[in-house]
Design a protein around this nucleic acid. Structure first.
Lengths: 344, 344
DNA sequence: CTGCCGAAGTGTTACGTATAACGTCGAGGT
DNA sequence: ACCTCGACGTTATACGTAACACTTCGGCAG
């Protein structure tokens, strides 16, 4: 006694469509594939398309991937999606990917903590390429030896490994911040830097020192902290508590650290911006949630993702990837003002 | 002139492993599949495993999916990853998924704007199931008719469509907030509510009114705003500017709106918490970045994701999904205090 | 000695798709 | 009348895997 008719309407295949339309499976593939124009007469093609729509046909992507050896899926490696910047990078990458019928999966260590897992064991789809932020360095080791097309975001462009680089003009942003503060009259600076040691932060430090050096009479101290409000506050509080001449401006590597700096100031009874100027970097939503709103550098995060995906698609097509850094822009808000001395 | 040997070392298949180990492909599959214990002698199994490791064999997931008809991939539908809450939900879901060798892809409209795309056209992998936040209602329409196992997050549990619900005990959280404020002596309230109209927000309103009703002499006004700092500030500012008795406490549906409320207070020259108490909901990083820090309700976002994935895995296994709401907890910080009258 | 059984593998097949290679058929050139 | 050729399709095949059905073989009860 075998089961008669299967009662569950299984997902229709291209062969089902073919049968219903009275053509061969190959013709269905030809029509719906969209390439090979002219291989099938328009009247037949129309019939096939209608039948496919009627049956609700959806190509089986596993079968397609198996046949083609490509998956139209990219892996995006970022340290943590809870950092708004990277959430926006993902959004940009995913949006452009969708336009090209591509998918984006994330490296599955989205909390940034925990041991680096094998990205391929967990990335369910086989991958056509990888887009990776330099801030996810540990994950990159795991990627080593996979010889997939690799696009690096915000990393040292002199590295020759990656097929392409997408960089922000971080140095210019830091110059704009510094010039803004110098223009207001500041001369004693505190650099609240990220404890993470990647290119994107090294460039900040370098540009800051260079711009201050040009001013001649400016001084700067540096303290480092993990990218988190509490840690930033602590570091800033300690640095501000030391004896001697207090800095009049804190330049932060990141809006999150800047939020910490603002809290430190408040705890020490220093008013921002009257007694202490604070600048951020990134222009996250946080920057306008604080009071006063942060003077910061706006980074086009979504564009970073888009350009990264664009570069990857180009590489996969054998086209050259567009080079060149993305421009950033200083946004002056309420957290910066002339130093007390200049106001007196 | 045909090409002699392929110079590119193609990715080894299970058949390559079989050849190298001197067994059949079927045996390799048997050994590496891990099921069917005892079908292959331990000595042979060992040899196969070693050979696979040597060659760096990785199963082709497309082929496996094609064969099995399952993909071990779930779709997570959330309104926007830039909302830290959902980024954390994703983190929780992805972490648990990884433990079970599952993958999570995101509905590709991560900015929350734009027209709802077809989730299946863009989700590259075929899907085994869907986990969806009630806040992504538009996307759910697109999911209709896919008859995949569906787990709903934070949605009306009386809905019978989904295979399982994972809910936070939102009502309890709102009760805790209200009782806290009533206990401090507040009687005139403003409810800064989300403009989004989903279960999770309806419950907040209901619980608030119920708890206030129990107090007898309390009054509340409601204003609604989109989930964004600027919109929250504007709505709060307008509501506070009206003539008559000013509310002494603003209860917000969300930390983001609470940040807006704090900004509105500052603009109007009202000190928080001395002249106006403000409460949030979610306990995002933002809550401790603000000054004063927000009194808010801590939601176990990661757990929501975990439980959602857990429920989906259960459903896929034919096991019953664990029911029951996740507990939430009031976190009292600096943004609440007794009202001015009680202090005088 | 025969028949049966379990252990340990192997041969084979199907999953659904894309495309290379192969018909077929009528029009048009010589 | 014969060949060619383009237009329109079809047949056949391979991608890599999992698992069903089968073989082989030594052991052992009847």
């Amino acid at each position: 006694m075998t089961s008669a008719q299967q009662p569950v309407p299984a997902r229709p295949t291209s062969r089902d469509v073919a049968r219903a339309a009275g053509v061969s499976q190959a013709t269905v593939s030809l029509v719906l594939g969209g390439k090979w124009p002219g291989r099938v007469s328009e009247v037949t093609a129309q019939r096939v398309r209608e039948t496919a729509a009627e049956l609700g046909y959806r190509p089986n992507l596993a079968a397609r991937s198996l046949r083609l050896g490509r998956t139209r899926t990219a892996l995006l490696v970022v340290p943590a999606l809870t950092n708004e910047f990277f959430a926006r990078v993902y959004a940009g990458a995913a949006a452009l990917a969708a336009e090209h019928d591509f998918g984006v999966v994330l490296y599955p260590s989205p909390d940034g903590t925990g041991p680096a897992r094998d990205p391929f064991a967990s990335a369910r789809a086989a991958l056509d390429g990888v887009i990776a932020s330099s801030m996810a360095a540990d994950a990159l080791d795991a990627l080593h030896g996979a010889d997939l097309p690799l696009v690096m975001l915000d990393s040292d462009p002199s590295g020759t490994g990656p097929a392409a680089h997408v960089n922000l003009d971080i140095a210019d942003g830091m110059r704009q911040v510094t010039d803004h503060l110098l223009g207001l009259g500041h001369r004693r600076f505190l650099h609240l830097a990220s404890a993470v040691d990647t290119w994107t932060f090294a460039v900040r430090a370098e540009a800051l020192h260079e711009a201050l050096g040009a001013a001649g009479d400016a001084t700067v101290r540096t303290v480092r902290a993990p990218l988190d409000v509490g840690a930033g506050r602590e570091a800033a509080e300690q640095a501000l508590a030391v004896a001697g001449e207090r800095p009049t401006a804190i330049v932060c590597d990141d809006d999150i650290l800047a939020a910490g700096a603002c809290k430190a100031a408040r705890r020490l009874g220093l008013r921002v911006p009257d007694e202490l100027s604070v600048t951020g970097f990134d222009d996250l939503a946080l920057a306008t949630a604080l009071e006063p709103e942060l003077t910061t550098v706006r980074l086009p995060a979504e564009q970073v993702g888009e350009r990264g995906m664009e570069a990857l698609l180009a590489v996969l097509d054998g086209r050259p990837a567009e080079q060149g850094g993305l421009p950033v822009q200083l946004v002056v808000r309420g957290s910066t003002a002339p130093p007390p001395a200049a106001r007196a």
